[in-house]
Amino acid sequence: MASKIGEIILDCADPEAAAAFWCAALEYRVTARDETGVAIAGPAGAPTLLLIVSTDPKAAKTPIHFDLWPTDRDQAEEVERLVGLGAQPVDIGQRDVHWVVLRAPSGHEFCVMPRQPA
Rank of each mutant, 00 (worst) to 15 (best):
L82R: 08
Q88E: 07
L85N: 03
W69L: 05
E7Q: 11
A18P: 10
R81G: 03
D67L: 06
L49I: 08
T55R: 02
V90F: 06
T71P: 00
C12A: 07
Q116H: 13
I64S: 01
C111K: 07
E78W: 02
T55M: 06
E35R: 13
Q116Y: 11
A24K: 14
D11I: 02
G37D: 01
P57F: 08
A60D: 07
V38P: 02
I52P: 05
R73P: 00
V100K: 14
C12L: 07
Q94G: 08
W69A: 04
V100L: 10
T31S: 12
D74Y: 04
A60C: 04
A19P: 10
M113S: 12
A60F: 04
T48I: 10
E78Q: 10
G42V: 03
A32Y: 14
A118M: 03
L51S: 05
P15M: 06
D91S: 08
G45L: 01
K58L: 10
A24T: 07
D67A: 04
Q75A: 01
T62H: 08
E7P: 04
M1W: 07
P117H: 13
R29G: 14
R103I: 12
D14E: 10
T71M: 03
K58T: 05
S54E: 01
K4V: 15
V53C: 06
R103E: 15
G107Y: 11
R103S: 15
V38H: 01
R81D: 01
T71C: 06
F110D: 10
D74I: 08
V101A: 15
D74W: 02
D14K: 04
E35I: 14
M113H: 13
V83W: 00
A18G: 11
V53R: 10
V79H: 02
D91T: 02
W22H: 09
W22F: 10
I8Y: 03
R95C: 14
A44L: 11
T48M: 06
R115T: 15
A25T: 12
L26S: 12
A59G: 04
A25L: 13
D96H: 14
A87V: 05
L49C: 09
G107N: 12
D91H: 08
K4D: 00
T48P: 04
W69I: 04
G37S: 07
Q116G: 09
I8E: 09
E77W: 00
P89Q: 05
S106L: 12
C111T: 09
R81W: 00
C12S: 05
